[in-house]
Design a protein around this nucleic acid. Structure first.
Length: 519
RNA sequence: CGGAGUGUGGCUCAGUCUGGUAGAGCACCGCGUUCGGGACGCGGGGGUCGCAGGUUCAAAUCCUGCCACUCCGACCA
C-alpha cells in the first residue's frame, strides 16, 4: 500500500513504466530537460553518479594499457566521406556547423553570409575519423603498435526522439580507439574492452549483462564485428549498455593508417573502437529503481552514507550536530569497496522527515537518522536503501557508534552485492530457452503489436538457436521480428556445443541469439 | 518526414464546447503548533493562459497562420 502510494505520488496516479522512469529521474534529482531540444541538464546528484562511473571505469581503461587524450569537437565534413558505410550510418543525424560569425540583418541575429565556412564542420557523433587521421600520422612502424587511446567527451547525434539518459541529442561518453598489427590482436583488444564493460557493469553498477556479438544487421557502420553488453530493464526490455567494435582494416584503408612491418612491407592496421555513455545511468535507474525512488549501488553513489540529524531548534541540537560531524569525519577516513567512504551530514534547514525521504528517493545506500536519543546513548539508527521496507513499515536498525563505523564497509559491500543478486535473479529468470518456433515466439511476445501495456506485460527475452543467415535471409527475419517490435540483441559469448534447428527457418542452427524488445 | 495529441505559476492539471475580473492540488515564503516514519492551521508570493494576427464592448475561450513539445512509426549508445 505504501509502495503504491509512493509511486503514485511521483507519477501523478499513473504507473506505467515510462512514467515511473521519468518520475524517478525528476524526483531523484538526476537530470531535467533543457531549453535545448533533446538535450538534458545533468544535475549534481546525476552528475555525481557519472563522475563515479568515470573514475571507476577510467582505472580499468588505464589498466588495459590505454591512455587518455582529447580530440576536437569539430570534424571536417570531408573526413566522413572517406569511409562509405560509416557516413551512410551517421549521415542522417549530424549537427553541421556552416558559419563562423553572426550578423544583425533586418533586426535579426543570423549567420553572416560572408562568414560561410569553405568546408562545413561536423559536431562529432563519434571520433573514428579524426582519431584515425591522427593515427595515420602517429603510426609508422610495427614498434608503434599497438596504439591504444581513449577519450572522455561529449558527442552529438541528432536523434528524432529523445529520452533522458537513454537517448539525448548530446551525451557524454568515453570512446576507446586502438590500432594493431594483426587481426588477432585487434580482435583480442575488442574482446578485452567488452569484458571490461561486462565486469564494470556487474561489479560497479551491479547491473548484470549478457556479453555477445551483434548480428550483421546490428553492426556499427563500417565495422567487421560488433559486440555488446545487453542489460535487462525492469520492464523486460533490453538496453544496449556498451559496444565494442572490430573495424577490420576498412578505416585504416580509408585513412591510410599503415605501418612498416618487420619485413619492411607497408601494411594496414587493424583497428577497434569501443564506447559507453551516460546511457549507463538510465540503465542503473531502470535496473535498481523501485516504487520509493532510485537505489544506487554504493560503488557509484556520490554519497554512500547520509546522516539526517533530527533538529528541533532546541539546545540539544548542537550535540546532535557535533556527534554527526564527528561521525562523518570518522567515516570519511574509513575504507569501503577499496575507497574512502563518502559520507554526508545533511544540515539543510528542512524537516528531517522530508530530508530522509529525499535521500530515500535519491537512492543513498545508507541513511542514518541521528536524534538526541541516539546521541545520548552513543547509538546510530540507520536504514538500508536496498532493503527499505517490511510491508508498510520502514526497516530501521540500531548499532553502537563504534560498531556502526566498523560495519559500514561490510554493509556497503552487502548492499552492492544484494542489488546485483536481485537484478541477476531477474535476468536469469526471464530469459526463456524453451521457445523453439517462430509461432511460439509470436505467441510469447503477443500476437498484436500494440498489446503491451507498459510495465504490465513483462516479457523478458528469448534465447533461441538460429542459422545465422546473411543478406536477404537476415533482412526477412528482421522484418518478421519488427512486426512484434523485436530485435536480435546479440549472440551470447557462451555458446553450447550443439544447436537446435533455427527458430526462424527450421534449418540447422549454428548459434544461439537473444531476442527481445529494446530501448 | 508520416499519424495522433498537447501547449494555462516550478510540477500535475481544471477552466475552452456555451467569450464576461485566471483557478485547484503539490512545491515555495512568513507566523504558530509540531518534529524518531513523507505534519497541521492561518496568512502570503508567483502566471502578459506557446507566439503573431483577426473577430468582438469584451478572448485562455471563437477564427487564421506559425512555433514548440509529447506519444506512435522510420533512426539510434
Amino acid at each position: 500500500m505504501q509502495r503504491a502510494l509512493s509511486v503514485s505520488r511521483m507519477t501523478g496516479n499513473r504507473s506505467s513504466f515510462p512514467d515511473w522512469y521519468q518520475a524517478i529521474v525528476r524526483e531523484a534529482d538526476m537530470a531535467e530537460l533543457s531549453p535545448v531540444r533533446g538535450s538534458m541538464i545533468i544535475k549534481p546528484w546525476g552528475y555525481g553518479v557519472w563522475e563515479r562511473i568515470q573514475q571507476t571505469m577510467d582505472r580499468r581503461i588505464k589498466a588495459m594499457g590505454v591512455d587518455n587524450c582529447y580530440f576536437p569537437l569539430f570534424i571536417p565534413l570531408g573526413f566522413f566521406a572517406k569511409e562509405a558505410q560509416h557516413v551512410e550510418g551517421f549521415a542522417k543525424e549530424m549537427a553541421v556547423v556552416t558559419h563562423h560569425r553572426l550578423k544583425l540583418i533586418d533586426g535579426k541575429l543570423q549567420p553572416d553570409p560572408d562568414a560561410k565556412l569553405d568546408e562545413p564542420l561536423i559536431v562529432r557523433p563519434t571520433s573514428e575519423t579524426i582519431i584515425g587521421d591522427a593515427f595515420s600520422r602517429w603510426i609508422k612502424s610495427h614498434r608503434d603498435l599497438p596504439m591504444k587511446i581513449n577519450q572522455w567527451a561529449n558527442v552529438v547525434r541528432w536523434e528524432m526522439r529523445t529520452r533522458l539518459f537513454l537517448r539525448t541529442s548530446e551525451f557524454l561518453w568515453q570512446e576507446g580507439h586502438t590500432a594493431h598489427a594483426s587481426r588477432e590482436d585487434a580482435l583480442a583488444s575488442t574482446r578485452e574492452a567488452l569484458e571490461m564493460y561486462r565486469e564494470f557493469s556487474e561489479t560497479v553498477l551491479a547491473m548484470p549483462v549478457v556479453a555477445g556479438e551483434k548480428p550483421e544487421n546490428e553492426r556499427f557502420p563500417g565495422a567487421d564485428n560488433t559486440y555488446s553488453i545487453e542489460a535487462m530493464m525492469q520492464d523486460g526490455k533490453a538496453l544496449q549498455a556498451g559496444t565494442s567494435h572490430y573495424l577490420g582494416t576498412s578505416f585504416a584503408r580509408a585513412q591510410s593508417i599503415r605501418f612498416q612491418g618487420e619485413s619492411g612491407e607497408l601494411e594496414f592496421c587493424h583497428t577497434s573502437s569501443w564506447g559507453t555513455s551516460t546511457r549507463l545511468i538510465g540503465g542503473v535507474i531502470m535496473t535498481h529503481g523501485d516504487d520509493d525512488g532510485l537505489r544506487l549501488p554504493p560503488a557509484i553513489a556520490p554519497r554512500q552514507v547520509v546522516i539526517v540529524p533530527m533538529l528541533r531548534g532546541k539546545p540539544e541540537d548542537a550535540e546532535v550536530l557535533a556527534f554527526g560531524q564527528a561521525l562523518v569525519a570518522t567515516l570519511n577516513d574509513t575504507f569501503a569497496l577499496g575507497e574512502p567512504v563518502r559520507a554526508l551530514l545533511d544540515t539543510k534547514d528542512q524537516r528531517s522527515a522530508e530530508k530522509r525521504w529525499n535521500w530515500v528517493c535519491r537512492g543513498a545506500p545508507i541513511i542514518v537518522e541521528l536524534g538526541p536519543r541516539d546521541v545520548a546513548a552513543g547509538m546510530v539508527s540507520f536504514m538500508r536503501r536496498d532493503d527499505l521496507r517490511d510491508g508498510d513499515k520502514v526497516k530501521s536498525q540500531a548499532l553502537s557508534r563504534d560498531d556502526f563505523v566498523a560495519q559500514v564497509p561490510a554493509l556497503l559491500a552487502a548492499i552492492q552485492q544484494a542489488l546485483f543478486d536481485e537484478a541477476k535473479a531477474r535476468l536469469d529468470a526471464n530469459i526463456r530457452r524453451d521457445i523453439t518456433t517462430y509461432d511460439g515466439l509470436t505467441e510469447f511476445f503477443g500476437a498484436a503489436p500494440d498489446d503491451d501495456e507498459e510495465g504490465v506485460a513483462f516479457k523478458g527475452w528469448v534465447r533461441a538457436s538460429w542459422s545465422r543467415p546473411t543478406g536477404e535471409g537476415l533482412e526477412a527475419i528482421e522484418q518478421k521480428l519488427k512486426i512484434h517490435k523485436l530485435t536480435l540483441r546479440n549472440a551470447p559469448l557462451d555458446q553450447p556445443a550443439s544447436f537446435a534447428p533455427c527458430i526462424f527457418t527450421g534449418e540447422p542452427g549454428v548459434e544461439e541469439v537473444l531476442i527481445g524488445r529494446a530501448y
